[in-house]
């Protein structure tokens, strides 16, 4: 079973690397969103550093949505999804592994790029650390919540838009606690740990529960 899931994990990583698109495109999109904001609101450094964490989080949310629609759809189109169901590994674990691989190629690059892009928004050291840390623990929640939407829209040809509409409301709590943890790290009266731990809890809950929801959606999509 472990070997089975490991093989699937490396397949998805290899595919993302060879097909391209996934990780690099996400980071480029992230970069363009972050670059556009200072042009829109003007070069007010105080304002930028105050809203910087929020901008980084919104950019991460939107770039995370970018590749999600293909998470299960590619496998549904070429028949791989049927074959997953003939495996001794339960579909829930298949979903979990696919999401983990997806996060490694789309979420992790964003986390690594965040400190660099934070500099463009005039964030100082503690704020940079806070935003990076909050993205590190928060982006898995975005990926796993997105997987539910991806599974629900798996058989729709242009499901990307519907997926965004389904997922963004679910992502609101993650966004709230992610941004407040990142802001708290940059100073202010609020303690950093309170929103940060809630964010961790949200991520863990999403990782634990969404594979079941997504697998159920995939099963009923095959009928």
């Amino acid at each position: 079973m472990k070997r089975t899931l490991l093989a699937l994990f490396w397949r998805d990583i290899t595919l993302a690397r060879r097909v391209g698109g996934g990780g690099v495109m996400g980071v480029v999109f992230f970069l363009s969103l972050v670059t556009v904001v200072p042009f829109a609101i003007g070069p007010d450094l105080n304002l930028l550093s105050r809203i910087g964490p929020a901008i980084l989080w919104i950019a991460a949310l939107l770039s995370g949505l970018l590749g999600l629609d293909r998470l299960f759809q590619a496998d549904e189109e070429d028949g791989s999804l049927d074959l997953f169901r003939l495996s001794p590994a339960p579909l829930e674990l298949v979903v979990l592994v696919k999401c983990a691989a997806h996060w490694c190629v789309t979420g992790l690059p964003l986390v690594l790029a965040a400190p660099l892009f934070g500099l463009m928004l005039a964030l100082d050291g503690p704020a940079l650390g806070g935003v990076t840390l909050s993205l590190l623990v928060g982006t898995p929640a975005l990926t796993f919540l997105g997987a539910i939407g991806a599974a629900l829209t798996v058989s729709l040809r242009r499901g990307g838009l519907l997926l965004s509409i389904l997922v963004i409301p679910l992502a609101v709590p993650v966004l709230i606690f992610g941004v407040s943890a990142a802001t708290a790290a940059g100073g202010g009266t609020m303690p950093f740990l309170t929103p940060f731990l809630v964010l961790c809890a949200l991520s863990l809950a999403a990782i634990a529960l969404s594979p079941f929801a997504a697998a159920a959606a995939l099963r009923s999509a095959g009928e």
């Binding site: 290899t14 060879r18 097909v19 189109e77 028949g79 074959l83 001794p88």
Partner: peptide, 18 residues
């Protein structure tokens, strides 16, 4: 039973990049 069978459908189940 699903773990004891091979299913070959209309789709080949192949990834073109691999």
């Amino acid at each position: 039973l699903p773990e004891r069978l091979h299913y070959l459908g209309h789709a080949d189940g192949l990834k073109t990049a691999l």
